[in-house]
């Protein structure tokens, strides 16, 4: 029995915003199946009563003083943009035709 099906991998690719080819989906389905089977070993550790750690160190939220500080100028912020119009990021349409 496989841990993950090709259809599930296609769904993951959609969620991940990766336009994969059919060949790629076949390839990743096989590889992800092997990887998931292997990482499933975490279940063997008895850890029911153990709290999860999202982080190695105890963390508290950190705030800086609410003071105005210099930031990037518009031309700096836009310097790596694929497309720019009127000092703004130019992007493809975000809403569907029917919207």
């Amino acid at each position: 029995m496989s841990a993950i099906t090709r259809d599930e991998v296609a769904h993951l690719a959609r969620l991940s915003r990766l336009a994969l080819t059919d060949d790629e989906l076949d390839h990743y389905a096989t590889q992800l199946d092997a990887i998931i089977e292997s990482v499933a070993k975490v279940a063997e550790v008895a850890a029911e009563d153990v709290p999860p750690s999202s982080h190695a160190l105890p963390l508290t939220n950190v705030f800086r003083a609410d003071e105005v500080q210099p930031g990037l100028a518009p031309e700096q912020a836009l310097s790596g943009a694929p497309a720019v119009e009127d000092d703004r990021f130019r992007v493809p349409r975000i809403l569907g035709e029917e919207a």
């Binding site: 993951l12 991940s16 990766l18 992800l32 990887i35 975490v42 279940a43 850890a47 709290p51 999860p52």
Partner: peptide, 28 residues
């Protein structure tokens, strides 16, 4: 691409507790 999809899988509802959640406990 492999890792993005693997991570998306481990964080999906239905799999989260068994994978990401359990891994965090192993971390402890």
């Amino acid at each position: 691409k492999r890792r993005i999809m693997l991570g998306t899988y481990a964080l999906s509802s239905g799999y989260y507790d068994a994978y990401y959640g359990q891994a965090q406990k192993v971390r402890t």
